[in-house]
Simulated scan of single mutants.
Amino acid sequence: MSNFELSNSKNYVNEQVTPMDNHLAGEFWVKFWGVRGLIPTPNSHTCRYGSNTACVEIYVAGQHLIFDGGTGLRILGKMWQQQQKSLEAHLFFTNSQSNRIQGFPFFAPAFIASNCFHIYGTAASNGASIKQCLCDQMLQPHFPYPLQVMESDLNFYNLTPGNAVELGEVKITMAIINKNQKSIGYRVTWGEHSIAYATDLHKSLDIEEQKQILHIIQGADLLVTNATYTPPTGKNHEYAELFWKTPVDLAQTADVKRLVISHHHPDDNDTFLDKIQDQVKSAFPNVLLACEGMLLSVENS
């Protein structure tokens, strides 16, 4: 049975990142470098949970996997640079919206020739590949340097939901979890253990979407997902239960062992998120709200 433990790291990531020995957390762990949805929100009221947009690192069986490249990817890159050694990693994108890709132009290790990155994604709603989406955001007037100035070895892969990527002993399966946004969710499996990353849930799921989501989260040791929000212009904290009902229902149905809710709304400050976490625990005790710097490890026992 899996046992998840919080590391001794700080509850948030700041500019003074410290290199971490991978083996201190075991052979299968997840670390949160960006936990905010939509747009970065740096201010004094978001410092505990964090203000960077989505970026999650998973280390498993010697493989470095990154899920989404929001602004948290820049901080991860700074930590990796301090290790002063060649890197090889796999970047998986859930969709091509700005909050998932905006950190990629600032990912410093991609500019170093000795590094190698494998980049995965599915077609955006307009049909553009993940490579095209990353290229477009680095063109003038959006960014001063094109993707071609990145000297690392960049390998792009177009994913087909329903198929799988195998990296040695690690298997990554995927499924469409939000048809409107063309968003995919992932399940990382190593032996008997698994982590699911499905971060584009919306409040009303049709039968096909629910089937796809349950397929990748069923029995997962850990599910990283989002709470479902009302539209930004109609946000009302009086209806906070709407923020977490869908992920809790899915986690209970799929017999998920631990739930982590991430992609917090820009308007949700630390105090409000503390209250939400207490409310969710009343329905699903083994839950955490993600904060930057949080490290969870899957230990065999």
Rank of each mutant, 00 (worst) to 15 (best):
M1G: 04
S7F: 02
S7W: 04
N8T: 10
N8Y: 13
S9N: 13
K10D: 09
V13A: 09
D21T: 13
N22F: 14
H23R: 15
L24H: 07
E27W: 13
F28S: 01
K31N: 14
W33M: 03
R36D: 00
I39A: 12
P40K: 06
P40D: 09
S44T: 10
S44N: 11
H45D: 09
R48N: 01
T53G: 11
T53R: 09
A54M: 11
A54L: 08
V56R: 13
Y59A: 06
A61L: 00
L65T: 07
T71P: 06
G72N: 00
L73E: 06
L73S: 04
L76E: 03
L76T: 04
K78S: 10
K78R: 11
W80R: 09
S86D: 08
E88T: 15
E88W: 09
E88R: 11
A89H: 14
F92A: 05
Q97R: 11
R100T: 07
R100L: 13
I101N: 01
Q102L: 01
F104S: 02
A110N: 05
F111A: 05
I112N: 12
A113S: 15
S114I: 12
N115Y: 14
C116P: 10
I119H: 01
G121E: 01
T122L: 04
T122I: 06
A124I: 00
S125L: 09
N126A: 10
G127D: 00
S129T: 14
I130T: 01
K131N: 14
C133F: 02
L134T: 07
L134N: 08
Q137G: 07
Q137T: 02
L139F: 05
L139S: 12
L139I: 08
H142D: 14
H142R: 12
F143K: 09
Y145I: 06
Y145M: 07
V149P: 02
M150K: 14
S152A: 12
D153H: 14
L154T: 03
L159D: 00
P161R: 02
G162Q: 14
A164E: 05
A175Y: 08
I176Q: 06
N178D: 15
N180G: 11
I184K: 14
V188S: 12
W190N: 08
E192I: 05
S194C: 15
I195G: 02
A196W: 07
A196C: 04
A196S: 15
Y197P: 07
D200T: 13
H202M: 00
E208T: 08
I217Q: 00
L222W: 09
L223I: 02
L223C: 03
V224Q: 09
V224P: 00
T225V: 05
T225E: 01
T230E: 12
T230R: 12
T230W: 08
P231W: 06
T233A: 08
G234Y: 10
K235R: 13
K235I: 15
E238F: 05
E241W: 14
W244C: 02
K245D: 12
L250S: 09
Q252W: 08
V256W: 00
V256E: 05
V256Y: 06
S262W: 03
H263V: 01
H263Q: 03
H263G: 00
H265Q: 07
P266F: 01
D270S: 00
T271R: 10
T271L: 13
T271M: 11
T271K: 10
D274K: 11
I276F: 06
Q277A: 15
A283N: 09
A283P: 05
A290T: 03
S297V: 02
V298G: 05
E299L: 07
N300E: 10
